[in-house]
Simulated scan of single mutants.
Amino acid sequence: MSTKQKIVVIGGGFAGLNFVKKIDKSKFDVTLVDKHNYHTFPPLFYQVASSELDPTSICFPLRRELRKHNCHGVAFHIGKVRKIDVAAKTISTDYETTHYDKLVIALGTTNNFFGNKDLIKDVYTLKSTDQAIRIRNEILFRCERAAVEPDNEKRRRMLSFVVIGGGPAGVEIAGAVGELKRYILKRDYPGIAPDDLSITIIEGTDRLLGTMSREASDTALRDLNQLMVEVKLGRLMKTYNDNVITLDDGSTIYSEMVIWTAGVTGVPIEFSGTDYKAGRGGCFPTDQYCRIEGLEDIYAIGD
Rank of each mutant, 00 (worst) to 15 (best):
K25A: 04
V8Q: 07
G79E: 00
P43I: 06
Y46R: 11
V9C: 13
E65H: 08
T40I: 14
F76T: 02
A49E: 04
A88R: 14
H39M: 15
S57F: 14
V20C: 01
L53Q: 03
N70V: 13
C59T: 15
A88E: 14
F28Y: 01
D85V: 11
D54A: 05
H36M: 10
Q47N: 07
T90G: 10
G73I: 00
V8P: 02
L62K: 13
H77S: 04
L53E: 01
V9F: 10
D85T: 12
K25R: 01
A88C: 13
A75T: 11
T90D: 12
H72A: 09
T90R: 12
R63K: 13
C59M: 15
K68H: 11
N37D: 13
G73Q: 05
P43G: 08
I78V: 04
L17A: 10
C71T: 09
L66M: 06
L53C: 06
Q5M: 14
H77G: 04
G12H: 00
L17Y: 09
G16I: 04
H72D: 10
G16D: 05
K21E: 08
F41V: 07
S50T: 03
D24C: 03
A75G: 00
P42V: 13
P55A: 08
I10D: 03
K68W: 07
R67D: 13
Y46T: 14
P43S: 08
K21N: 05
N37G: 12
I78T: 07
S50Y: 03
K35W: 11
K21R: 11
T40Y: 14
L32A: 11
G13V: 04
K6M: 03
F41N: 08
F28S: 04
F60S: 15
G73A: 01
C71H: 13
G12L: 04
K22R: 08
T56R: 12
L32E: 11
C59D: 08
F19N: 02
L44I: 10
F76W: 04
A88Q: 15
I7W: 04
K80Q: 04
Q5G: 14
F28C: 01
I10E: 02
R82G: 03
K80D: 06
H77K: 06
F14P: 00
F14M: 07
R82K: 06
S57E: 15
D54H: 06
F41C: 09
H36L: 13
T90S: 11
K25M: 02
L32K: 10
H36N: 15
A88M: 14
V74D: 01
T31L: 10
G79S: 00
N70Y: 12
C71E: 03
I58N: 11
T90Q: 14
G79I: 02
T90V: 12
V81S: 02
K22W: 05
G12S: 07
P43Q: 11
D29Q: 01
T31R: 09
V9E: 09
F41I: 08
H39K: 15
V33Q: 05
A88D: 13
S51A: 09
Y38Q: 04
Y38G: 01
T31Y: 01
D34M: 02
V74C: 07
V33G: 01
T56K: 15
Y38W: 00
P42A: 15
L44N: 12
K27S: 09
S57D: 15
A88V: 12
H39S: 15
L44Y: 11
D34I: 02
Q5V: 12
A49C: 04
